[in-house]
């Protein structure tokens, strides 16, 4: 039965690992903005390589002029 004490300590260590992960997530600001990351994942042009092939989501020169003229 004494093996239980080892099991308890092992499970506590695993739980502590998750607690540490949670604290790390809070400290690195992941709970500060719960909206933009959910939207950002839908933007498909963060990668510059992709930009060249995907002209649809690039700000074209023409569009830039229109935008800046406003």
């Amino acid at each position: 039965m004494e093996i239980i004490i080892v099991l308890v300590i092992a499970s506590l260590l695993v739980a502590l690992l998750f607690l540490w992960l949670f604290i790390w997530a809070v400290k690195s600001g992941q709970y500060e903005d719960d909206y933009s990351p959910s939207v950002r994942i839908l933007f498909d042009n963060h990668d510059n390589k992709e930009l060249k092939s995907n002209t649809k989501s690039k700000i074209t020169d023409e569009a830039r002029d229109v935008l800046l003229r406003q």
Binding site: A15, L16, F18, L19, F22, I23, V26, K27, G29, Y31, E32
Partner: peptide, 15 residues
């Protein structure tokens, strides 16, 4: 942020 950390620790220990 600090409150969240405190809450996380308390929840962990409570469980």
């Amino acid at each position: 942020r600090q409150l969240l950390v405190k809450l996380g620790i308390a929840g962990f220990v409570f469980g």
